[in-house]
Simulated assay, not measured.
Amino acid sequence: MDFARCITLENSRVRLRPLEATDFEDLKRVIFDPELWQFSSIPYPVDAVGLAAYLTKAAQDRAQGIRYPFAIIDRATGRVVGSTSYGSFALADKRLEIGWTWLGKDFQRTGLNRAAKHLLLKYAFGELGCERVELKADALNQKSREAMRRMGATEEGILRSHMVTQSGRRRDSVYFSILKPEWDQLRQTVFQEFDARG
Rank of each mutant, 00 (worst) to 15 (best):
I31Q: 01
F32A: 02
Y68L: 12
T189H: 04
I73N: 05
S85G: 11
K117D: 10
P34D: 07
T101C: 11
T8H: 03
E134R: 06
I66P: 01
L140Q: 11
R67D: 14
L121P: 09
F3S: 07
F176I: 03
A53H: 08
R15L: 15
C6G: 01
G129R: 08
S41Q: 05
I42V: 15
E97P: 01
G111F: 07
K57W: 11
S177R: 01
S144F: 08
Y123Q: 05
F89M: 10
T56E: 15
Y175N: 09
R160I: 10
G129I: 10
A53M: 13
G198S: 14
S83T: 14
R5W: 01
G99F: 08
V174F: 03
Q185G: 15
H118T: 01
Q192Y: 02
Q64P: 02
Y68M: 10
M148V: 10
S41A: 13
V30F: 10
R13K: 14
L179A: 12
I72K: 04
K143L: 12
K180G: 13
Q166Y: 02
T77P: 02
S85D: 10
R170Y: 08
G198I: 04
R79P: 02
H118L: 00
S161T: 03
Y68V: 11
A116G: 13
K28A: 06
R17E: 06
R5Y: 00
D184S: 14
R170D: 03
C130G: 07
R170W: 10
N113Y: 04
H162W: 07
P69E: 14
R79N: 12
K143G: 14
P43E: 12
F89A: 12
G168M: 10
T110V: 04
D47E: 09
Q64K: 08
K105M: 11
R13F: 13
R149V: 15
Y54T: 11
G198N: 13
P18F: 04
W100I: 10
T189Q: 12
V190S: 05
A4Y: 03
F70P: 03
P45Q: 04
Q188L: 14
G157C: 09
F107H: 09
K57Y: 09
A137I: 09
R187I: 00
S177Q: 04
G152E: 05
T8G: 02
R67G: 07
Q38I: 04
R132Y: 04
A53G: 11
M148L: 15
Y175F: 15
K122P: 00
F24W: 02
W100A: 15
L159S: 13
A59C: 05
L135I: 08
L128C: 12
E146Y: 11
I73H: 06
A115G: 13
D33V: 10
I42Y: 05
G65N: 08
L19E: 08
P69C: 15
T22P: 00
F191V: 03
G82A: 10
H162V: 02
A147P: 09
R75L: 15
R29Q: 14
L119P: 09
L179M: 14
G50H: 03
F107Q: 04
Y86N: 09
R79L: 14
L121H: 03
Q64V: 03
R13A: 15
F3V: 07
A137Q: 05
K180Q: 14
R95G: 07
E193D: 13
S177K: 01
F125A: 09
L91T: 08
P45L: 04
A63T: 07
C6N: 05
L55W: 03
T101W: 05
